[in-house]
Amino acid sequence: MPAVSHLQSTRTAYPDDIGVEVSNVTKSFGGDESRVTVLNGVSLTIKKGEFVSLIGPSGCGKSTLLKLVAGLSEANGGSVSINGKSVREAAKDKAIGLVPQSPALLPWRTILDNVSLPISINPGANAGRKLRDPREILQSFGLGHALDRYPAQLSGGMQQRAAIARAFVFDPEILLMDEPFSALDEMNRDQQRMGLLDFWQSNRKSVLFVTHSVPEAIILSDRIVLMASHPGRIAEIIDVDLPRPRNEALYATDAFRDLEGYVRSALRKVMEAARV
């Protein structure tokens, strides 16, 4: 595992510093006449151990981009690579951890068995990687008391936390999360957000995190990718130069508020441009 602590200072990327590379990707849906271009010329690099958020108006193609990186759909043009390999190869190596919008836990398995699932699936790819102990990871996500419970017995926030633990347990190189907290109420959402922040800060992985919350994007990310719609494209990439490790106290700082104001106005500009 390469050290990742230098990432804030050095932005000059050596090739093996790159986790995800999306270059000039185009994606459209529909047949000849009803063809809609959802992504147009999207290029984006996520360094190893970097946390990148995707934010933008709904329907601008955030989930579509995430699915391309996850290998769940194919681009019409351009390319996506993970650690220099194709997405397919990366999936074979179990390099991708996915946290969908809903927890998508298997209701017939206990929380422990749900989180153990990625270890038992595609076991050929387990060789030479440092798998985590599912019990330990659940413990660190505050679910140590719920190992033998079933998903339906847990609150939405706890289910989502288990889904995140499931994505971390097999130590993938890159984590993809599509609005994982959007179904939770505000109190709960902030708690889960901090849980993820804590865990990630001590287990740095490349993360592509889709969100529609500006504060969430700021507190978690190294960079925020602002997308515009029709067609979906990158409008602006905003560096979040706030010190790490971070915690709730950051919300109250001037630096945070200034950046929040900036991101909000950038987002507003993108939305207004779409309306004209």
Binding site: A70, A91, I96, L98, P100, I121, N122, R166
Partner: peptide, 11 residues
């Protein structure tokens, strides 16, 4: 959504 998780694991 669960199927997506399986697919990313190359199940």
């Amino acid at each position: 959504k669960a199927l997506d998780v399986f697919k990313t694991l190359h199940a």
